[in-house]
Amino acid sequence: MTETIEPFTVQVPPALLDDLRDRLRRTRWPDAEPVADWSQGVPLAYLRDLCTYWAESYDWPARQRLLNRFPQYRTTIDGLGVHFLHVPSPHPDAMPLVLTHGWPGSVVEFLDVIEPLTDPVAHGGDARDAFSVVVPSLPGYGWSDRPTRTGWGVDAIAAAWVELMSRLGYDRFGAQGGDWGSTVTRALADAFPDRLTGIHLNMVTVRPDRDGDLTDAEQRALDRLAEHREQGTGYSTQQATRPQTLGYGLTDSPAGQLGWILEKFATWADCGGDPVGVLGADRLLDNAMLYWVPGTAASSARLYWESFRREAWPPTAVPMGAAIFPHEIFTPSRRWAEKAFTDIRRWSELPSGGHFAAFEQPQVFVEEVRAFFRTVR
């Protein structure tokens, strides 16, 4: 097994961009929804407007330069090429930190937090809060390879992250994640507790405790979870059972790929149903490009097939911190979480923000990560 780490630069061929614009211009659109909201999915006019911008105005070369300002690499782990950003801190005592994204996200979620985390002094902070940051693309996502065999669930990914950090010279490190990144981070704590200084999550998935009286916040969390299970889980059922079938349409149609993931930004972000207005068309399309360009509709969905039937973990004693954003899919109470995490050092319930914490609230995200890891430095 080679342990070579090779520099990587994102360079999308012009011909692929021409093909993207051509496909967008030739999209065969369905009829409009007979409702005045998002209850049947992404409204036709909303998606058409964003696709028109994608085809006619979106400047990928400029966006590509923003991504390429950070050092990127690839290395092969267990036969699979892993793409990652690695930004060492200029401060000598910085803590290594791996940030893991989920679906339908990508490494672009973290672009606004890397510099404040690695060089806090340059952003009004304290050198004692510095991190050397590693941001991998999940297997089957972005410019990581697409697995050609089964077995790449969250446990295998956690083992790969440990190997990656070892190759970079980091014996102990912190881990942070949301969505699948939260699950991978939990897998790290379960299998490799001695390698971790601590874990920080912005999505905390634990079993609700319905015994005794519920607080108002706990009842609201259960109500939102019930609504999600009734109205919002069709995507995960499809991806967990028949990801290959889904992949044909999404890989062939950029409008289809964008619509599939845009719905989740509209529903899970704290954006009042207007992800373009709150997050910006360019940032949303940056993320979509990391699915469209490498053609990862099916391979990214397979993570659900690989991991949804995994058994629950036992409680972890690794120091843990949580940032609970109010528009998250599930907002557990600390009381519920204490059964799964026996050493909670920081528990923050924030006033705004949703599922894509670093993307939506980068300043708050940075402050929360700094504050938690101060307790374990």
Rank of each mutant, 00 (worst) to 15 (best):
F373W: 05
H83R: 08
F341Y: 15
K339C: 01
R334E: 15
E56T: 05
V10H: 07
E230P: 00
F373M: 08
V87W: 07
G272L: 08
Y53T: 05
A158V: 04
H327R: 15
F192T: 02
E311M: 09
T375E: 14
P326A: 10
L80S: 07
G102F: 04
G247Q: 12
G153H: 06
G232Y: 03
T233R: 15
D270Y: 09
R128P: 00
D49E: 15
S236E: 12
Y248A: 13
D31L: 09
A322G: 09
M165K: 08
L196E: 10
V162R: 13
P120Q: 08
G256Q: 12
G273L: 10
C271I: 01
P314D: 15
C51I: 03
V276I: 10
A45K: 13
L196I: 02
P116K: 10
S39W: 03
G277D: 12
H355L: 05
S166H: 14
V42G: 11
T241N: 11
D194T: 11
A337T: 06
E328A: 13
P43G: 07
I77D: 13
A269M: 11
A266C: 04
P254E: 12
P332M: 12
V134W: 06
G151V: 02
Y248T: 10
L67Y: 08
S348A: 15
R21Y: 02
L168F: 03
A269W: 07
E56M: 03
T100S: 15
R172I: 01
G272R: 10
Q72H: 14
E163A: 11
W54S: 09
A158G: 14
P96N: 13
V12Y: 05
L196A: 06
D194P: 04
G178V: 00
W268V: 01
G105M: 08
D22F: 03
L246A: 06
L50K: 11
V206H: 10
E227V: 00
P43L: 12
E263W: 04
W180S: 05
W38L: 07
V87Q: 15
R370I: 01
L262Y: 12
D270E: 09
N202P: 01
V42R: 11
R146G: 01
D282P: 01
I114M: 11
S137Q: 04
G177M: 06
V10A: 07
Q176F: 11
F192R: 04
L44C: 05
W103Q: 06
V107T: 12
A226C: 02
F131A: 12
A226Y: 01
A337H: 09
M1Q: 10
W313I: 00
M95F: 02
H228Q: 14
S137Y: 00
T245E: 13
R167A: 06
F325Y: 13
D49A: 15
L111C: 02
H200K: 12
R69C: 03
L350H: 07
T100F: 04
D223G: 06
G232M: 06
L258T: 12
A156G: 02
Q64Y: 01
V108R: 13
V35E: 09
V369C: 09
W143V: 01
R74V: 07
S182T: 00
D155A: 13
Q231I: 00
N202G: 04
L225A: 13
W38E: 11
R146L: 00
T205S: 14
T197S: 15
S166Y: 03
P208R: 12
V10R: 07
A191G: 15
P254V: 07
Q64G: 03
T251A: 15
